[in-house]
């Protein structure tokens, strides 16, 4: 029984809106985490596409796979994160001999579906609708899930992950209880890490910096002297000036999203933050699957599993019994 998986990102819909699924959450994006879980099922036929792509194009891909003999396709619309056990969804689908299985939580559909080959082959290409399969079957999931529809939802996922309330594992080493630091981060000895927090790869925390309130700093950031982060997240490649106090906010380069007031402020003209030159971080997700083109040859790829530096470091720590 061959399975394929199509993972569809939120896309920008032609606006300035940020696609939360492509923002790192404690070192890895939600998209990367979904891809890893799909890989964990042993699915090698995997494609990641942007939702900006026309529905007909996505359907075309699935039909193409079905014609080539793929028996079932796992379709994941990355608008949410959930701890759902994909293997259990596949098992549920098989045991019930369902044609379409859709995963729901108490708030509604989670954007995860498992489709049978025959349904896809019978689909209506003109209307972008799947074939006449009758009603789909619900798979009810009562575990952890969060819809990534707002900056607040992003912060909730970060906080829940740091507190161990979901299966998102920080991409780093646990220096103390719930304090996660990537081996490639530089943390000055005078930095105060109060409670759960995360420091990403190649990030520099300068003297006197304070992290509290389940704050996170993603990779390649530079937090200058004496700045305090309280219930805040700093996205990759961001510089923060000295002596600031960032509360209940997300900062991405020069843009600050204040969650208390629900407003966005440009800090660039004030020189309070800046965008650093990006660096490439080794990832377990090969870049080829991020190809958004519809070229048939580049659309479907075999995905090798490449452990990254942290996985190796973690393995080393475990091997040393630390």
């Amino acid at each position: 029984m061959e399975l394929g998986a199509l993972v569809v990102t939120q896309g920008s819909h032609g606006t300035q809106q940020i696609d939360n699924s492509t923002l790192p959450v404690l070192g890895k994006t939600v998209l990367d985490r979904w891809v890893e879980r799909v890989q964990g099922l042993g699915i090698n036929l995997l494609s990641v596409v942007d939702s900006d792509l026309l529905g007909s194009d996505r359907l075309h891909t699935m039909i193409d796979w079905a014609k080539k003999g793929v028996d079932q396709i796992l379709l994941i619309l990355v608008g949410s994160y959930s701890d759902v056990d994909l293997l259990d969804v596949v098992r549920f689908h098989h045991e019930g001999q369902h044609r379409i299985t859709r995963v729901f939580d108490p708030l509604g559909p989670l954007g995860i579906s498992l489709l049978d080959r025959q349904i896809i082959l019978n689909s209506n290409f003109e209307t972008h609708k799947l074939g006449p399969a009758g009603p789909s079957t619900r798979y009810d999931f009562l575990g952890y899930s969060v819809r990534l529809s707002s900056p607040s939802a992003y912060r909730k996922l970060v906080e829940d992950a740091l507190e161990g309330r979901c299966d998102v594992k920080p991409n780093g080493l646990e220096a103390e209880r719930n304090v996660w630091i990537h081996p490639a981060a530089h943390v000055n000895p005078s930095v105060r890490l109060e409670g759960s927090c995360y420091v990403g790869a190649y990030t520099r925390l300068n003297p006197g910096v304070v992290l509290r309130g389940r704050s996170s700093v993603e990779h390649n950031c530079d937090i200058d002297i004496g700045t305090t982060l309280d219930h805040a997240s700093v996205l990759p490649n961001t510089y923060l000036a000295p002596g600031l106090c960032v509360r209940n906010s997300i900062i991405d380069g020069t843009r600050l999203e204040n969650l208390d007031r629900g407003i966005s402020v440009d800090l660039g003209p004030l020189g309070l933050s800046g965008r650093k030159k990006p660096i490439s971080i080794p990832s377990s997700t090969p870049s080829v699957i991020r190809n958004r083109s519809l070229g048939e040859t580049s659309f479907c790829v075999q995905v090798p599993i490449v452990p990254d530096a942290v996985d190796r470091a973690s393995a080393q720590v475990e091997a040393n019994g630390q």
């Binding site: 002596g243 600031l244 106090c245 204040n258 007031r261 407003i263 402020v265």
Partner: peptide
């Protein structure tokens, strides 16, 4: 403005 208030808080 709310933006100015945020900056005043940010800069302490």
């Amino acid at each position: 403005s709310p933006e100015a208030a945020v900056i005043l808080e940010l800069t302490q």
